[in-house]
Amino acid sequence: MRIHLFPAGATEPVTLAGKPGQSLMQAAVDANVHGIEAECGGLLTCATCHVYVREPFASQLPPPGSDELGMLEFTASARQANSRLSCQIALVPALDGLAVDLPPTQT
């Protein structure tokens, strides 16, 4: 499945392939995408995999859990209504073409 990551200020995305069941964070880390720090490795103990999910995908995701909402309070870049932690986004076929913006900084 295709994933489009837009680094801060970029007009062209970094496009990569993800596997169903994999997290968005893991797909980005495996592809060496700059802008996803993932300091905790997806254990939901940091906020360094913060992304802004574009529509129509943001509304297709399950709502964030209380742990994710708590970690989103500690993002280095401003939190927005479409902010999510990429470690909590499980790739499924319905998310093929997923587009997210990367914040200017994760730390």
Score class of each variant (00 low, 15 high):
residue 79 R to S: 10
residue 84 R to W: 09
residue 27 A to D: 13
residue 98 L to C: 04
residue 87 C to K: 13
residue 105 T to E: 15
residue 28 A to I: 01
residue 43 L to I: 07
residue 87 C to P: 12
residue 88 Q to R: 15
residue 94 A to N: 07
residue 18 G to P: 05
residue 78 A to P: 10
residue 54 R to I: 00
residue 20 P to C: 03
residue 100 V to S: 03
residue 107 T to E: 14
residue 12 E to Q: 15
residue 44 L to C: 14
residue 36 I to E: 06
residue 44 L to V: 08
residue 97 G to P: 05
residue 42 G to K: 12
residue 94 A to F: 06
residue 89 I to R: 09
residue 3 I to S: 08
residue 12 E to H: 10
residue 56 P to Y: 02
residue 35 G to Q: 11
residue 50 H to E: 02
residue 102 L to D: 08
residue 72 L to P: 01
residue 2 R to V: 07
residue 95 L to C: 06
residue 40 C to Q: 13
residue 53 V to G: 03
residue 32 N to V: 11
residue 96 D to E: 14
residue 40 C to P: 11
residue 88 Q to L: 09
residue 19 K to E: 13
residue 27 A to R: 08
residue 91 L to S: 00
residue 85 L to M: 02
residue 23 S to H: 11
residue 42 G to S: 06
residue 68 E to A: 10
residue 103 P to T: 06
residue 7 P to E: 12
residue 26 Q to L: 11
residue 99 A to D: 03
residue 22 Q to V: 09
residue 59 S to L: 04
residue 41 G to E: 05
residue 69 L to C: 13
residue 48 T to M: 01
residue 26 Q to A: 12
residue 7 P to V: 10
residue 84 R to V: 04
residue 17 A to Q: 12
residue 36 I to T: 06
residue 32 N to C: 14
residue 29 V to F: 11
residue 85 L to N: 04
residue 8 A to D: 15
residue 68 E to L: 06
residue 59 S to C: 05
residue 15 T to K: 00
residue 58 A to P: 01
residue 27 A to M: 08
residue 2 R to N: 14
residue 63 P to F: 00
residue 42 G to D: 04
residue 105 T to P: 00
residue 31 A to I: 06
residue 53 V to K: 00
residue 46 C to Q: 03
residue 63 P to R: 10
residue 42 G to P: 07
residue 25 M to G: 12
residue 27 A to I: 06
residue 98 L to M: 08
residue 25 M to C: 12
residue 80 Q to D: 08
residue 59 S to Q: 12
residue 7 P to K: 10
residue 87 C to S: 13
residue 18 G to H: 07
residue 88 Q to K: 13
residue 103 P to K: 00
residue 62 P to S: 06
residue 79 R to Q: 14
residue 84 R to T: 07
residue 3 I to F: 11
residue 103 P to R: 02
residue 14 V to A: 05
residue 77 S to D: 13
residue 89 I to P: 03
residue 21 G to A: 07
residue 6 F to Q: 04
residue 50 H to R: 01
residue 53 V to P: 03
residue 11 T to P: 01
residue 3 I to H: 06
residue 8 A to Y: 15
residue 40 C to R: 13
residue 84 R to A: 03
residue 27 A to H: 09
residue 66 S to M: 11
residue 7 P to I: 12
residue 39 E to C: 11
residue 25 M to A: 09
residue 51 V to G: 04
residue 1 M to G: 09
residue 9 G to L: 11
residue 50 H to Q: 02
residue 93 P to Q: 09
residue 8 A to H: 15
residue 22 Q to A: 06
residue 2 R to I: 09
